[in-house]
Simulated assay, not measured.
Amino acid sequence: MVYNSIRAKMVQEILSRLEEVFPDRLELKFSSPLELLVAVILAAQSTDKKVNQLTEKLFKKYRSCQDYLKAPLEELERDISSINYYKNKAKFIKSACQQIMERFGGQVPDSMEALTSLPGIGRKSANIILYNAFGKNEGIAVDTHVLRVSQRLGLTREKKPEKIEQDLMKIVPREQWGKFSNLLVLLGRYICTAQKPKHQECPLYDLCPSREL
């Protein structure tokens, strides 16, 4: 408990410093829950930059679940063929839209249970959608950046995303779960990189037990 108390105090300092450097938002571009859901599906094994380049045109053509369902699978595949695993992702998008129409009245659901029942949406993706589209904190999205940064900061000793999430949820106040994930993603993407982290640019340098690595 003492260990968690120390880490909880550290978390508040981390949040305070990162908020001065990064915005509390995704780099994925979207203007509706459906757009974010599609973008999140497309982002698996790809970069936000590449997804944004694709969706700039895609979201002008497909504005509703009906639009995705009307298009033949082969057409949607062509429209997203610049992205990795586009055939599987096209199937996920169409299946998710079908279920949204049949089970949720055409509206992207705003609960963890409902979102994770959709094809292509796991817990991490659901956390991203819930916070960034609906302002709900149901968990902490642990992607590769959050995993790496939280380990380097000594906030967790776990290696699996689901266990890391549980550790972080114990020390980050619930109302800050989504923000915490967004900020750590940006820190990991631009400063605390996997290779050659930019220690001298890091606002958390003096707090980080891994700074000499």
Rank of each mutant, 00 (worst) to 15 (best):
L155D: 03
A133D: 02
V149K: 06
K91Y: 02
V11A: 13
N182C: 13
L73W: 08
D67E: 04
I93N: 02
E138T: 11
D67G: 04
M101W: 06
E165K: 12
I121L: 08
R78Q: 12
L26R: 03
I121W: 04
L118H: 05
N182F: 02
R78D: 08
M101R: 11
S181D: 09
P119K: 14
L130G: 02
C97K: 00
Y190D: 07
L42P: 05
K89S: 09
E77K: 15
F134L: 11
E165F: 03
N132E: 12
Q200T: 03
L168K: 10
K60T: 06
I121P: 00
S32R: 05
F30A: 01
Q98C: 09
A8K: 15
C65H: 07
F22E: 05
I6Q: 15
D67V: 01
C208N: 08
N4A: 13
V2K: 13
A71K: 07
D79G: 09
K49P: 01
S64Y: 00
S181I: 10
G120N: 09
T47M: 12
V38F: 00
Q107E: 05
L76S: 11
S111I: 06
E162G: 10
W177K: 11
N4Y: 13
Y86A: 05
P119V: 12
N84R: 15
K124C: 06
M101S: 10
K87E: 09
F134D: 07
V146T: 10
Q66V: 04
E35N: 01
G188W: 06
Q53L: 14
N52G: 01
C192L: 13
V185C: 09
A114P: 00
Y131M: 05
E162S: 15
G139C: 01
N132F: 03
R123M: 05
Q98G: 12
R148G: 11
K49S: 12
I128V: 15
F180E: 11
Q107L: 12
C192F: 06
L26H: 04
K89F: 04
K196H: 13
F180Q: 06
K60Y: 07
